[in-house]
């Protein structure tokens, strides 16, 4: 069996994210990293493989993004993926979520995975939806925000996730697309050896045309959802901030603040 894990490169959590007013797109300069939510998807793939719950021969990391996304793929491989595929093409720049999902699904069509795993959300785009887009293109059943996966009889999974009314348990036949919530596991740290070895594992670079992506369906200009403007959210008075240095004093201040507002 083959598991494909979709991973994305995102601005590092410490970087102040902003929109470039001249393009309306996210300013992607500055330090970048593998989307932290995707490490849970890789870990889920590794646990399925290592436990023998599924006869997994290969875990393949797949990413769409600019040249720098290679580093996210190296990280994914250092966490256990066997090889990686980097979909990169100027024609893809600025794709909306529907176009991104379509493009990724074209790579997956070619790979024919038995299971596609994703993170619950990208740290920058925060759409929570790539999985559902990919699944519809692939014609596979799909669930998002899954926090537990059990294998049932080889070609079925039992997945749990929280939805509107509490926890749902759903049986899903493979092949399937599943996005995992961050409570599903505690991702491992890569060993030094794995980090050093990551660059030696196969990384295939593909352009849009290589995987049959219809270029009239991708990229900023062709995306169906168009960014047509932006505005500032209503300004809120900034709250008072106390840096805790002397805790007794901090607590005194908190109590006084609450007391002033008759909250105690």
């Amino acid at each position: 069996m083959k598991i494909c894990v979709l991973v994305k490169e995102v601005p590092d959590a410490a970087v102040q994210k902003r929109i470039d007013p001249s393009t309306g797109r996210m300013d992607r300069s500055g330090e970048k990293n593998l989307n932290p939510y995707d490490t849970h998807a890789i870990e889920a793939a590794m646990q399925l493989k290592e436990s023998g719950a599924l006869p997994v021969e290969e875990v393949v990391a797949v990413s769409m993004g600019p040249d720098s996304a290679e580093r996210a793929l190296h990280k994914a491989v250092s966490l256990g993926a066997d090889r990686s595929i980097h979909l990169s093409d100027d024609a893809l720049a600025g794709s909306d979520v529907a176009a991104t999902g379509y493009a990724l699904s074209q790579v997956l069509e070619r790979e024919k995975p038995d299971l596609v795993l994703l993170g619950q959300q990208s740290d920058d785009g925060e759409c929570y939806t790539i999985g559902a887009v990919v699944a519809d293109h692939l014609g596979m059943p799909s669930l998002t925000q899954v926090i537990k996966i059990d294998v049932e009889g080889g070609d079925k999974l039992r997945a749990e996730r929280q939805a509107e009314y509490g926890y749902d348990t759903v049986e899903v036949a493979l092949p399937a697309v599943i996005s995992v919530g961050d409570a599903i596991n505690e991702p491992r740290y890569p060993s030094l050896k794995a980090i050093m070895g990551a660059k030696k594992k196969p990384l295939e670079k593909v352009a849009a045309g290589d995987v049959g992506i219809d270029s009239s369906k991708v990229g900023g200009d062709h995306s169906a959802a168009q960014w047509t403007g932006s505005k500032e959210p209503p300004k809120k008075e900034p709250g008072k901030i106390i840096e805790d240095e002397d805790t007794n004093e901090t607590v005194e201040q908190i109590v006084a603040w609450l007391d002033e507002r008759k909250l105690i």
Binding site: M140, P141, S142, G166, Y167, D168, V170
Partner: peptide, 9 residues
């Protein structure tokens, strides 16, 4: 291909 086993636990 997806079936609900238990809902709203």
């Amino acid at each position: 291909q997806a079936t609900m086993i238990t809902r709203g636990e």
